[in-house]
């Protein structure tokens, strides 16, 4: 589904990603871990098409398409979804209106007519139930005054509504208490299928207790320095990032 080859990217003169290689197949869950500043969020931003970052080299292939040539909205409409680490507050637009607009736009891109409002509301109610979201939430303004947990739940709610092929969860566990974490993880697990894939970006192993990854990668200094199975996350939790980073620092010293 996703092939990233030798991806180099940064902001202005500061190169953050220094040659990322990653392959994600349908049905797989990949976890990308790493200490702060290693480039985790940059990677997710570049995949989603954030124009603040400049791609200096390499390529990203997504289901046969050169992702780097597509606008952010085209990437989304091809099935890429980014759950933001810091979801943006948009006063004046209700959650329901926002989601209706994005679903309508996605369908427009696919040459489909808008979903009747009645059906859309029914679908929203189903997904709200999946994520234990309370009534009244739909009419609130998008992320405005939401707690950290509510914002993250709102991201997963959008993911559930948009049904992406590839979901990137950027630090979705940060700001979540243990109950919210369980609900969000449960939602992600239920949305999982043989046709979609998930990349979980996280600093801690915590979320991976609930969403078990097929692969774990350690990102450090803009490179994937170690890859393994789910057990790698436990090992990292036990030994700390130093275990990997010291070795790496020696190599580049």
């Amino acid at each position: 589904m996703l092939q990233i080859k030798n991806l180099k990217a940064g902001i202005e003169d500061n190169q953050i990603l220094k040659g990322i290689n990653l392959e994600v197949k349908a049905g797989e869950i990949h976890a990308i871990m790493g200490p702060n500043g290693s480039g985790k969020s940059t990677l997710s931003a570049v995949i989603a098409g954030n124009e603040d970052y400049e791609v200096e080299g390499g390529n990203i292939n997504f289901n046969g398409k050169n992702l780097l040539e597509l606008d952010p909205e085209e990437r989304a409409n091809n099935g890429v979804f980014l759950s933001f680490q810091y979801p943006v507050e948009i006063p004046g637009i209700s959650v329901s209106n926002f989601i209706k607009t994005s679903i309508t736009e996605k369908r427009k891109a696919q040459g489909l007519d808008p979903i009747p409002t009645k059906d859309l509301l029914k679908m929203m109610r189903e997904k709200m139930e999946l994520l234990s979201i309370k009534q009244g939430y739909l009419s609130r303004n998008m992320n405005e005054g939401f707690s950290g947990g509510e914002k993250k739940r709102n991201e997963i709610f959008q993911m559930a509504m948009l049904d992406p092929k590839l979901a990137i969860l950027d630090e979705t566990d940060s700001g979540l208490d243990i109950d919210a974490l369980r609900i969000v993880a449960n939602g992600v697990n239920k949305l999982r299928s043989a046709d979609n894939a998930t990349i979980i970006i996280t600093h801690y192993q915590r979320l991976l207790d609930y969403i078990v990854p097929d692969f774990v990668h350690v990102l450090y200094n803009g490179r994937i320095v170690k890859s393994g199975g789910a057990e790698l996350a436990h090992e990292l939790e036990e030994k700390g990032y130093d275990w990997v980073t010291n070795e790496e620092d020696k190599k580049w010293a």
Binding site: E51, V88, F98, S102, E105, A109, L162
Partner: peptide, 11 residues
């Protein structure tokens, strides 16, 4: 906010 919306498929 513009990028956030575009990442949701909104042109």
């Amino acid at each position: 906010a513009l990028f956030y919306m575009r990442s949701r498929g909104i042109g």
